[in-house]
Every structure is written in C-alpha cells, then in structure tokens.
Design a protein around this nucleic acid. Sequence first.
DNA 1: ATAATACCCGAACATGTGTTCGATGTCAAG
DNA 2: CTTGACATCGAACACATGTTCGGGTATTAT
Lengths: 224, 224
Amino acid sequence: MMMGRRKSATLTEPQKKVLEILRDYQENMGFPPSIRDIQEKGKFSSTSVVNYYLERLETLGFIERSRQVSRGIRLLNGAPNELMRIPIVGRIFASEPVPIPSTDFSYMDAEHMVDVARNMLPAREKANELFALEVRGDSMIDAMIFDGDIVIMKPAKQARNGEMVAVWLSDKEETSLKYFFLEGGRVRLQPANPNMGPIYIDDPKTVKIQGKVVMVIRQVEKPM
Amino acid sequence: MMMGRRKSATLTEPQKKVLEILRDYQENMGFPPSIRDIQEKGKFSSTSVVNYYLERLETLGFIERSRQVSRGIRLLNGAPNELMRIPIVGRIFASEPVPIPSTDFSYMDAEHMVDVARNMLPAREKANELFALEVRGDSMIDAMIFDGDIVIMKPAKQARNGEMVAVWLSDKEETSLKYFFLEGGRVRLQPANPNMGPIYIDDPKTVKIQGKVVMVIRQVEKPM
DNA sequence: ATAATACCCGAACATGTGTTCGATGTCAAG
DNA sequence: CTTGACATCGAACACATGTTCGGGTATTAT
C-alpha cells in the first residue's frame, strides 16, 4: 500500500487542535476559517503561530493551502471524500420497466436527490451516469431489497457474469433485480437471498437488462 | 410540505451562472470563491454586479452569506449536504455481542470509515455518536441484511416500539438485528423479512439492546 | 558552551476582498 | 413623457486576512 506519511499517531497537541478547529469551522460555517478565526478559537497568541502550524500540517499532508487567498485551506484528510448528487429518477415496481433517466435533469430539484460519498462507490463511476430508484413493494424481496430501499444504478445494456442487474422479463412482464449469469447460451438469474433458487431463461432475448445495481441504501427510520 | 420559495424554475440566466460557478468552485477548490473570482469566471463586468446577484440569491434562499467575511458564502440549496465520517468499529457476527465503540477513535484511521451524507440520515444525529459495523455471515438474513453489508447504528440501551435494534439474546447467546416491540411485558422481535415470523421473549431481562440501526448500506460489487 | 531544533511572540506590511455610492441604461406601467 | 423597478457600471473606500521578520524561549544533542 504505502500512502505517504503515516505520522498520524504522532500529532502534536496544538496540531490536533488546529485540525479540530478546521474541521469544526468548516462543518458549522460552510467555509474554511481565516487564520485569525483559528487563533481566536484555539486561544493562540499570535497569527504567526497558527500559520506555523498550518504550514506544518500542510507538509504532513493533512491540508492543502492556496497562498495569498483568504481562507484558502482545504482539509485533505482522506481526500477521496466528495459528494456525488444522484438523481432519483423514479420508483421501481415489479410490474413496470425501469424508468429511463432523462439525460438532463433540471437544475436543483432537491428532494429527488441522494447524496453519496464517492469513495463508497466502486471505482470512479462517472457521476452523471448514475441514477437512483426508490423500490416500491416487496417484490424485490428475493433480491434482499425491499420497500423504501434506494438502489443506485448505472445504465447498461449488457452485464458480465456476477453483476446485479435490473432486468425486464418480457415474457413475465415484470422487472426484477437479480444476479446475472450467462451460461452456455441460457441466462441464469440468481436471487441475492441464498435461500432461494435461481431462475433459468433459455432465450436470452427475453431478458432486457436495464442497468447494473451499484449500491443499495436502506434508511431505517421507524417502519412500524 | 411547502418549504419557502419555489421560484426554482424562474432563475434568471446570470443567477444560474453565479450558482453554477459557486458550485464548481467549491467542488474544485474546496472553499468558496471570492466575489472577484466569480466575476472573472463569469465574465461579469464589475464586482458590484456579482454582489448584486449574490444578494438576490440570498433572499431567494439559495445561498447564505456571512457579511464582512472573505468568501463567506455557503450554498444552501439542498444545503443539508455534508459528509459525516463514521468509524467502522468492528464486525458483527451472530455469535458475538456488538463491539462497543471506544469513545475516542484515533484521529484519521481512514479505511475504517464510512462517509455518509448527513441528509441521508434521520434528523440531526450527532456525528460522534454514530458508529458502523460490517456484517459477517448470513446470520442476519432474516433482517434483510447480509454478508458484507454495513449497518450504521447509534448507541442505545433502550428502544421504542418499531425501531430496529441490535440485541444480545443472553439465553441464546447471540446477537441479532430485529424490529423491537414491547407488548404487555414481553418482547416481540420481528424480522424485517415479512415472510418470517416473530420471536417472543417473555423475560425482557434477557434482551440486551446494543444500539439502534439507523441505516444499511450495501455495496454491490461483484459478489461470487 | 555551543549548536540545532522546535516552538512561540507581536507587530508591521501588502494585498485580497466585501462594501458602498453615484451615474447610466433598460423597459414596461401610468 | 414621466415614473419607477430592475439591471449595470466603475471606482473608491475600509477592513479582513495572509505574510513576513526580528526577536524570543525551551529542550536536546554535540
């Protein structure tokens, strides 16, 4: 692995304090603190001391600074953190095909968005390709997915073996989420729930793949 | 619902441009732009014009400004977007109790963290209370949770009816995730999977609640 | 002792940056 | 035409903020 310094454990007290303040301020205010803000919050005696520690933290790889710029500090901590705003383009029922995302979703629709940390997603998915669907009904229960869950998918017409896909079964007239396997000319659709058996479909033509499932999110509130 | 203005659709062209720049800059730089940055990026003729639109956007509820503060702009759109870094304190097996999070997890452990967008979580959970567990084995399958899933929980000793909890059943010597109900002196533990029946426990003493499940995340990679 | 290193101080400097203001242009309502 | 609301402009002002510098203190190694 190896990823630069890992002096993590040996962070001196004031260094930790500065980092703490950095994090807090950003959290509360929405923008980074000025040097003097840090000084005040941390009871530092001088701005130069703060500057001193900022430089230290920068060479340690914890933050990055833009010189000559007010509040030009970005904490770099795990750095691969970034929010991806994914549009919820619709709901998914067993009885209907997956709604296709309109390529340009209007400006800030909010409410119909899911925010996902990029490092939670496999590889470097392109943000604008992904879309989300809210699952309705218990029809996906054999995929270990149920009412209210949010599935994040990426559009796809084909899948490789082992990927979980949303498929439209044209003969049964329904949509389903299953693991996909193409084995000797016929399609095997495997439920995620290991207690359930697979479905075999001899004619691959009747299996229309709508997308690949990338992630499932379940907000457990108080379902009753 | 109703939540203030919804002039969304009628955003004038330069307003959209400013918002766009705001979003981009924040994304790329890690901190908000100065008025002059916006002016440059957007080819505005004067700083006062930019200021004009910022004020407009503020009264429209899209941004919030801190006066007299450099780059004191936070975009407010969905605004409750913010990353919460939650430590994965361990794995959960059916056969073992839930590991308790040590109150202070060392600074940036990374790798053992989950980043979750705050607006995905119910209410305003306090960030430092939450912790995450990786589920091992299929023992939680009747809770619609299985191998590899990440459950985000908040510590709790008691639960209200209908909440999903991690419980340690001292007689059966195992941990389980179930919906909790206290009904007339006895405890009913209801699996999330509606196909499965509840478990009844007459002596509430033998049910030790370890925490409440707040969210379940499943990264669908390519299992198998 | 001497040097080296890390830490700390306060103040001054240079400039980045929000703010204000008077003047001008537009355009539709009265 | 006048009026007023809205948009635009440029320039100056005030101050918020990064930066620098000469000088400190402690601790440790040489």
